[in-house]
């Protein structure tokens, strides 16, 4: 069993949990994720990025948004409750090096997976520009922690309630065309955001990594459900990714595949709302 040792709400429908998982805490590196399943018999397996870990305490930190049945169930669990299954760390760690000037773009809940990557990049000596995008002020998460590692922090909101009223691609474009052109870009967030970030950097030929959030079941390369088309080839996000060259990802196909179970998911969420 993997007990929840700490739970807090960061924003509307956004939760942070520390879960006891000493082995995973020890092995994990920036960019990796776990698959968790709240209940063994009928629960669903869902991937969540390891946002942080404490080796001494033997805990991993997960930050997630309640968007459907499983994440909503999870958000209802309390400190002390056991999560039935946690498997990890999965996926390849982010390739960290001193690239020079790195821009990290985090959209919405993407700030959670971005934090450990940005932190590692900073430690590797990069000059770090962080762009955080959210719908509105209330949904900006991890601002203080991001500020503590960024050389330059840019916040954008869709409604202008905080920071710039802009999409993240606006400052990204300015940076690419400016004097301090980035040597590398990392973008994590909703697939549409990653798609447009990749499209923005492409004309400037700035290498851009995106972290894909495809549908997964096992996370070990067995089911093939997480496959994406990269540079015309089929790759498995769970074992070949989750990060890929954003300029080569077929986002249209990925977006379509993310919708594979939408009718069933809406049904499940509806039922779950009725029962709460």
């Amino acid at each position: 069993m993997y007990h929840i040792l700490h739970k807090e709400q960061l924003a509307e429908k956004v939760f942070l949990m520390k879960i006891q998982a000493p082995l995973i805490a020890q092995e994990r590196r920036a960019g990796q994720f776990v698959i968790i399943q709240p209940d063994t018999d009928f629960g669903e397996r869902i991937p969540l990025t390891i946002a942080d870990a404490d080796v001494t305490a033997g805990t991993i930190t997960l930050i997630f948004q309640a968007v459907g049945k499983t994440t909503t169930d999870l958000s209802a669990m309390q400190t002390g409750d056991p999560v039935a299954n946690v498997l990890g760390p999965l996926g390849n760690p982010t390739h960290i090096a001193n690239f020079g000037h790195v821009v990290c773009v985090a959209g919405g809940i993407g700030a959670a997976p971005m934090f450990p990557i940005a932190q590692a990049l900073k430690q590797a000596g990069n000059s770090l520009t962080l762009i955080i995008g959210a719908r509105s002020r209330e949904l900006v998460i991890l601002e203080e922690r991001m500020r503590s590692i960024a050389d330059n922090l840019i916040i954008c909101t869709d409604d202008g309630s905080y920071g710039r009223k802009a999409l993240v691609t606006e400052p990204l474009e300015e940076l690419c065309s400016g004097a301090d052109k980035p040597d590398k870009v990392f973008a994590i967030g909703p697939p549409v955001m990653m798609k447009f970030c990749a499209a923005t950097t492409k004309p400037y030929q700035v290498p851009t990594m995106v972290s894909l959030n495809t549908i997964m079941v096992d996370g070990t390369g067995m089911c093939g459900g997480c496959r994406v088309t990269v540079n015309g080839e089929t790759r498995f996000t769970c074992v070949d990714g989750p990060e890929f060259d954003g300029h080569q990802v077929d986002f249209e196909n990925m977006l379509a595949r993310l919708g594979s179970y939408r009718p069933q998911e809406q049904d499940a969420l509806h039922k779950c709302r009725i029962s709460v």
Partner: peptide, 28 residues
């Protein structure tokens, strides 16, 4: 890679291990 194309492994795992055939109880 179109939507609706599965490896048998995925289809069978959802049904067997995740019990997705039991639509009233399974979350998968």
């Amino acid at each position: 890679n179109l939507v609706g194309v599965f490896a048998a492994n995925e289809f069978l795992t959802r049904s067997n291990l995740m019990k997705a055939y039991d639509t009233s109880r399974a979350d998968t």
